[in-house]
């Protein structure tokens, strides 16, 4: 394996620089407008005219978007929804002012969030429900089908059905689970763990999958177009686990692309094409074509870890930002 790859083509000088001026911890698009979530409490709308919207009275700990609104949880114990015009309102607040550090958006306007061990949902019927997890909630995501919420916690994950009285389904695996996602076909639930590995369950029969080989804890993952692969950070390369068959990655090797000196810090899959944007710990952003490992440089490394990146809905524009507050928007 040689690190001396041929010089890759670069679009870096075509990116429009944005001076975020604060660490970039999230990237979303509201319509065509890139919005950077900044440490501590500001959403930076980086459209034709730049606008900074202060949201929380504290730090934004988590953010999520469906393209129409951004929902943020903060250390002020508030859950706030911000729309494209910059107008915002509190959706909920924790009665003890505990940190709201997990948020997820679901079908038909549903929202989930957690503070401590309690997961909350505002259902598609606008009813609020809550669930007590066995330990602090460390990850939330809605299943693509049915009204189910996956909750990651210590020693496993729980599937909760907020609209029915059905008993929550417990998926057990020893250790601390710090994030959760469900495959777009709804067949697999994957968590990232305190250890540098992922764990997975096939929901039909609870069969386990261990996905290891990382050099660090996996902190970022995303499903590639069509749910073919789960793209993951946590290694000095882009690691893609295959989910195209009925067995998922069981007994198969991951695809390993875009080898680099620096660790992949964040990943964002192109919404339409088999391409993944990877942000590295040295500040570089690369577009990786899954079929042939062709690379395009979208941002030069500058030694500052990439904090977040994201695509617009059509996959025409990529936005990225670093922990040092440098950001950019690249129209393709």
């Amino acid at each position: 394996m040689s690190d001396t790859q041929a010089p890759i083509s670069s679009l870096a000088d075509r990116a429009r620089p944005v001076d975020a001026g604060a660490p970039v911890v999230g990237v979303h698009f509201l319509g065509a407008t890139p919005v950077f979530v900044l440490g501590e409490d500001v959403l930076l709308f980086a459209g034709d005219d730049e606008r900074r919207v202060k949201t929380h009275a504290g730090v934004i700990l988590a953010s999520v978007s469906d393209g129409k609104r951004i929902v943020t949880g903060g250390d002020d114990g508030k859950l706030i929804e911000t729309r494209a015009g910059g107008e915002n309102r509190a959706l909920a607040s924790d009665d003890k002012k505990r940190w709201i550090d997990q948020v997820a958006l679901g079908p038909e306007g549903a929202v989930a969030w957690s503070a401590g061990k309690t997961a909350h949902v505002i259902t598609n019927k606008r009813e609020e429900r809550r669930f007590e997890a066995p330990s602090t909630v460390a990850g939330l995501c809605f299943a693509p089908k049915g009204f189910r919420l996956a909750i990651a916690h210590y020693n496993g994950a729980t599937l909760w059905f907020p609209n029915t009285g059905a008993a929550p389904e417990r998926l057990e695996w020893k250790g601390s689970h710090l994030g959760v996602t469900i495959s777009p076909d709804g067949k697999f639930l994957i968590t990232c763990m305190q250890e540098p590995m992922l764990h997975g369950w096939r929901l039909a029969d609870g069969k386990h999958m261990r996905m290891s080989g990382y050099s660090a804890r996996v902190r970022s993952f995303d499903w590639t177009a069509g749910g073919e692969f789960l793209a993951t950070s946590g290694s000095e390369q882009l690691i893609l686990w295959p989910f195209d068959g009925k067995d998922g990655p069981m007994g198969r090797q991951p695809k390993i692309l875009a080898r680099a000196e620096a660790r992949a810090a964040v990943v964002a899959a192109h919404p339409r094409q088999p391409v993944v944007a990877v942000g590295y710990a040295d500040g570089a952003v690369k577009l990786v074509r899954i079929d042939d490992d062709a690379l395009i440089l979208a941002r030069q490394s500058d030694g500052q870890p990439v904090g977040a990146l994201g695509w617009d809905d059509a996959g025409q524009t990529l936005a990225f930002g670093t922990e040092a507050g440098a950001a950019g928007v690249l129209a393709l």
């Binding site: 660490p23 911890v25 440490g39 501590e40 730090v59 934004i60 700990l61 250390d75 940190w99 550090d101 401590g116 330990s135 602090t136 460390a138 210590y154 695996w173 020893k174 250790g175 601390s176 710090l178 763990m193 305190q194 250890e195 590995m197």
Partner: peptide, 30 residues
């Protein structure tokens, strides 16, 4: 809340404070 989490290796001494992992991550945003 002092959540002491064992690691997946099955060893009782290999533990971390799960709450600290989250809290320090959040604090570093300040």
């Amino acid at each position: 809340d002092e959540e002491v989490f064992e690691m997946n290796n099955g060893c009782i001494c290999c533990t971390v404070r799960g709450d600290l992992v989250r809290i320090i991550d959040g604090l570093m945003r300040r």
